[in-house]
Simulated assay, not measured.
Amino acid sequence: MSEDRTDSGGEQRISSVDNVFNIVEKMQELEQCGVSELADHLDVPKSTVHIYLKTLEDLGYVINDGGRYRLSLRFLQVGGLVRHNRNGYQAARSEVDTLSRTTGEVGTLGYEENGMRVLVYRSEPVEGVSDNAPTGEYTRMHWTAVGKALLAQHTDEEVRDIVDRYGIPAATEQTITDLDELLAEMDRVREQGYSTEDEERVSGIKSVAVPIGGDDPDSENIAVSIAGPKHRFSDERIEDELLPELRNAANVIELQSRHY
């Protein structure tokens, strides 16, 4: 791990910052690890890893529990403040809760950030079943109903750019992995005004989502969804019950977000 400035694509980068976030992301993956384990995963000297971990520990972002290191809840504080400052989130929380309570399914709110779908809020009734994705989770947009609703707000050229950046990997056997098929799916989403996810992220789970404020060029690119077991998401129920509830929630969120 070098401390020098490096040039990537004509832009200046500071290697030590890259190193810190490589460590943070690997610790997130490992959940808990020792210095040697982390050094092996990163293929860097133990002494270097130890210095970074000690610094992060002193700053309060890493916890040292008898030589086993884990990320601290300081990251939750940072993420929570970022989320709290988004207008759409402030307006949407109660509506997503109502949506979940009314339908008996899991309600979620997602944002697009840097070409990825970010789960920023979820509300789950006692009988609700979904993939148990954690708040703050980043995924490829073509995997989920929320992500497809977000992706469909882009032009085909922009969709191609996102695919060039992240690829079209599969999450399940049902995931779209062909660009032409994905572009056709985007046309369908734009035409019908909603998106579906049919076991494309997790087997047995189906979801339907609508964008919020999609016609306003100044609005945040966000979407709201309902998810649950596939057997409870018949086409009839989607059309007759779930879509009206989703569209009503999206309209309320859009109106309320203008006042935050």
Rank of each mutant, 00 (worst) to 15 (best):
L71A: 02
V35E: 15
N87I: 05
F233L: 06
R160W: 04
K230W: 05
G115P: 04
R122V: 14
H41N: 14
E173K: 12
R237L: 09
H84W: 05
D215V: 05
M1D: 12
L243F: 05
N114H: 10
R247F: 05
E191F: 02
E199P: 04
G107F: 00
E173L: 01
R258A: 15
V106S: 03
D215L: 15
L99N: 01
W143H: 07
S219A: 14
E185S: 10
G104Y: 01
I253R: 00
R201I: 12
G79E: 10
M141Y: 08
S100E: 00
N221H: 12
D187S: 13
S234E: 08
H259S: 12
A223I: 14
Q12S: 13
L56W: 02
L182S: 03
H259I: 15
L119C: 09
N87F: 02
T102L: 02
L56I: 09
L150G: 04
Q32R: 12
N248C: 08
G204V: 03
V49I: 15
R13A: 08
A184E: 13
M116Y: 02
G67L: 10
E158N: 11
R5T: 10
Q77R: 12
Q12I: 14
Q174M: 14
D65P: 03
D235K: 06
Y69Q: 02
Q28Y: 10
R13H: 08
H259Q: 11
